[in-house]
Simulated scan of single mutants.
Amino acid sequence: MNQRSILFDTETTGVDPDKGDRIIEIAAIELINDLPTENFYHVLVDPERDIPIEATRVHGIKIEDLKGKPKFKEIADDFLEFIQDDPLVAHNAPFDFKFVNAELSRVKRPAISLDRMIDTLKLARAKYPLSPNSLDALCRRFSIDLSARTTHNALLDCQLLSEVYIQLTGGRQRGLGFSNEDSEKTGKVYKKIHDHTPIFVKPTQQELEAHDKFIEEKMKNSLWNQKD
């Protein structure tokens, strides 16, 4: 049976919805059995407030870029219809969940349950506890092309994260790309992600030493410590 999930990302006016920060961009990609399909959702949102220059430096979006864009209350139902009741994958997912739920609360919609959350940052930290695990760092670890990522961008970040997620879960990507028509809908052009197979990642010397220390201290009677 095919398992559907949604990988998503947001861009915002700041870091705290409790202090009035709002969502300005949402992107989401449908996954079937953890592999991306060509079905995606992308929208720019009028935050009904200003965008601090510090935030613009991160994602490159100015308030002028959002003139005439829909408010969250106008896209809420479309977004909820796209994600349905499926699991939701995001990098540093608590951040995105908090913003989405704050926006849903404003328009009197039920909050999204945290039980649906799959946090790729948490997965990466468990797998590579001694290494940087930002999206950029993980892309470099897995040799994923970062040349298009000059600023944060929700749809491009989703594309990159979909490749990272494949590596973290040990799967195989069938390929993901958006047609010219899709690009025209979003107003931007994105590079196609080609077929990608799992990459063997050689552990660093620091990681090897940490592994040996863990085995020695925590698994004294394990097979790894038995001598020939």
Rank of each mutant, 00 (worst) to 15 (best):
219 M>S: 04
157 D>Y: 14
192 K>Q: 03
132 P>A: 06
195 D>W: 05
199 I>G: 00
124 A>M: 04
189 V>Q: 10
121 L>G: 01
143 S>D: 15
175 G>Y: 13
144 I>S: 01
210 A>D: 11
190 Y>V: 12
207 E>A: 13
203 P>K: 12
150 T>W: 03
211 H>Q: 11
223 L>Y: 13
217 E>L: 15
141 R>L: 15
198 P>Q: 08
211 H>G: 03
132 P>Q: 05
147 S>V: 04
153 N>F: 06
219 M>C: 09
195 D>F: 05
146 L>Y: 05
186 T>L: 04
165 Y>H: 14
173 Q>N: 15
203 P>A: 09
213 K>G: 07
215 I>V: 12
119 D>S: 02
152 H>Y: 06
222 S>N: 02
211 H>C: 08
187 G>T: 03
143 S>N: 15
196 H>D: 02
166 I>L: 07
216 E>C: 00
187 G>W: 05
158 C>T: 04
149 R>C: 12
175 G>M: 10
197 T>G: 11
192 K>I: 01
197 T>Y: 13
210 A>P: 02
185 K>C: 05
213 K>M: 14
148 A>L: 08
216 E>V: 00
192 K>A: 12
123 L>V: 10
222 S>W: 08
170 G>M: 10
190 Y>L: 14
197 T>D: 11
154 A>H: 08
226 Q>I: 10
180 N>F: 06
133 N>D: 02
144 I>Y: 06
227 K>H: 05
122 K>V: 02
142 F>K: 06
210 A>W: 05
124 A>E: 07
177 G>I: 00
194 H>V: 13
196 H>K: 04
189 V>H: 13
134 S>M: 11
206 Q>K: 09
211 H>K: 13
159 Q>W: 02
227 K>I: 13
119 D>P: 00
215 I>F: 02
166 I>Y: 00
190 Y>D: 12
